[in-house]
Amino acid sequence: MTTRTVRRSRGPLFLLAMPLAWSLAVFDLFVVGWMALSSLKTTREVVHDPWGLPSELQWGNYGEAWTSAAFGDGVLNSLLLVTGSGLGTILLAAPAAYVLSRFRWRLSGPVTVFFAMGLGIPGPAIMIPIYLGLDRMGLIDSLAGLLIVYIATNLPFSVFFLTAFFASLPRELEEAAALDGSSPYHTYWRVMLPLTRSGLIALFILQAIGDWGETFFALSFLREQKTISLTLLNFIQTMQYTGARWSVLFAGICIVVIPLLLLYLWMSSRLIEGIAAGYGK
């Protein structure tokens, strides 16, 4: 889309709002930069000169954070959870959203609202019943148990999100596919789903962010198993009680956040690509 060449009229509002966009961007960059920079200082520098540059880059903070927070225990589990729940959710939510948004049948409205209701269910309110259910199935302290919880709690948002994407696709596409003799399943897989690719990617990213940092359910349902956010939480608390070494703490935070940042940067270009593929010619 950046290749659009048509000249645009630029009103006064545009000139007024332009600095807003840029200052927001600069501020956001500043936040991430500050976090990264603080992870390379000494704690004294963080506290007494929070806005200055480090006198010497303390790469050792990362090693120290990695070992003392024991991130190693949680990384693999978190990767499994994030991928599993992202794919699992899409696998369940995309077909549901498709039939809810593109088919006119009596219950599509009520069922959509039924799913949306799940958005309003606060996690802490249903923790104990879920715990009891998982316990019956022997799924306490199991990744599979947590995965099910993540997928289920992601469903309301995902169904809702994808419903909008499906609903905004032009009706003619399906009709044209039908005229070509394509079966409804084929239409879904070959025509409709590829068009929502940008939506699916966005959804995956949003879920990955949520699940990567999720602590409440993980804390409630895991015991010996760890996720990376649990190790970070534990680390931050230990830091608070033993006198926060901010620099090491920031290094720990960076270790957790940087993979997310990379995922986002990588996937957001895929997102553009997906759009280009859909509308390119």
Binding site: L80, G138, S142, A144, I148
Partner: peptide, 14 residues
Amino acid sequence: IIAAVCLLAACGGQ
């Protein structure tokens, strides 16, 4: 469902 998921990820034993 649980059984299906258990096939994918090893269930924690007691």
